[in-house]
Simulated scan of single mutants.
Amino acid sequence: MMSRWSRPIAAFSLFALGLLPGTATAAPCGNNGSGFAAWKAAFAQEAARAGVGNRGLQALANAQYASRTIAADRNQKSFKYSLDKFMQVRGASTIVAQGRTRKARNPQFYNALEQRYGVPAGVLIAIHGMETGFGGFMGDSRVVSAITTLAYDCRRSAFFVPHAIGALKLVDQGTITGDTRGAKHGELGHTQFLPGNALKYGVDANGDGRVDFYDQADALASTANYLRQKGWQPGQGYQEGQPNFRAIREWNAAGVYQKAIAIMAAEIDAGG
């Protein structure tokens, strides 16, 4: 867990971040790393206005342009597959088999989540399996560097800027650090929350006083809370064309992913 220091940033760091008078207040997005430092200086002012504190601003100052993140963002081939091919490539049959075992092993946990949020076990388990292989690999990219790189990159800057602010606020809170590792697009934890969503929908399910997306209970409860807040209707169906499919669509924008989650979830729940 991050140490809760609150030491003021040194004057030279404030100058580098663009927080002293006379420095630039805006920088354009870019398509390579050459403008990242200037963008960070301008973004620091925006982040400070949004309520980011010293720890978050220091994490921003230390962020590095994430070339691997940009490469991954330009090469998301699996979402272009047919549904059958996507499910084969992503190991759907294994996720279903392991998911049934996980549900049978801990039914009280999943029942408690469904009672509170209305989301069936199969949906949460399918997402967990699809995102990280049930926590087997939660990413090796620095979350802050990845998400700020995407906020700077011209391709989808507007989408990622709020998540970059969210990541810096998570650093302020001690939920993550500048070195916390996640997926190449800055997603974190067992179910790969984007930082802005983590900030908004995170739940302390294990009662230890903090939200930890690398703790399974917190991550799955947060996922259930997200879906409920996005319109999940308890007791309603979640296949394509049914009321709760819209909430699954909120989780991931790729149609093939949405359909795969719905299909796997039904198979997991049908297995007991």
Rank of each mutant, 00 (worst) to 15 (best):
M130R: 01
I147L: 14
L168H: 02
T177L: 14
F137T: 06
T177G: 11
T132H: 02
D172N: 08
R156D: 10
T148Y: 03
A151Y: 05
I176D: 06
I147R: 09
Y152K: 14
L170G: 08
D153V: 09
G129E: 00
P120E: 12
F134E: 01
G139T: 02
G139A: 10
I176N: 02
H128Q: 04
K169G: 14
A167K: 10
D140H: 14
I165G: 05
G174R: 07
V119K: 11
V143Q: 03
G133D: 02
A146Y: 05
Y152Q: 10
L170S: 10
I165H: 08
A126S: 03
T132K: 00
G139Q: 08
R156C: 15
Q173C: 04
G166H: 05
P120D: 12
G166Y: 06
R155D: 15
V119C: 12
L168P: 02
A146N: 08
F134W: 02
S157K: 09
A167Q: 14
F134H: 02
R156V: 10
Y152R: 11
E131A: 02
G129H: 01
I165S: 03
F160I: 09
A158E: 12
V123W: 07
V171Y: 09
L168C: 01
V123C: 13
I127R: 01
L168Y: 03
M138Q: 03
V143K: 05
G129R: 00
G136Q: 12
F159S: 14
P162L: 11
R156M: 15
L124Y: 09
G133S: 09
T132S: 01
T132Q: 04
D172P: 01
R142W: 11
Y152H: 13
V143H: 05
G122Q: 12
H128K: 07
I147H: 09
I165Q: 03
F159M: 15
H128V: 04
S157P: 07
I125T: 00
H128R: 00
H163W: 11
L170I: 15
A121Q: 02
G122D: 08
T148C: 04
L170H: 06
M130T: 10
A146T: 04
V143T: 06
V171K: 07
R142N: 15
T132G: 04
L170Y: 05
R156N: 12
A164L: 04
V143F: 06
V161I: 15
V161K: 15
V171R: 07
V143P: 03
I127P: 03
L124F: 13
A158L: 14
A164E: 10
A158Y: 07
L124V: 06
A167W: 08
M138L: 04
D153N: 15
V119N: 09
V119I: 14
A121F: 13
L170D: 10
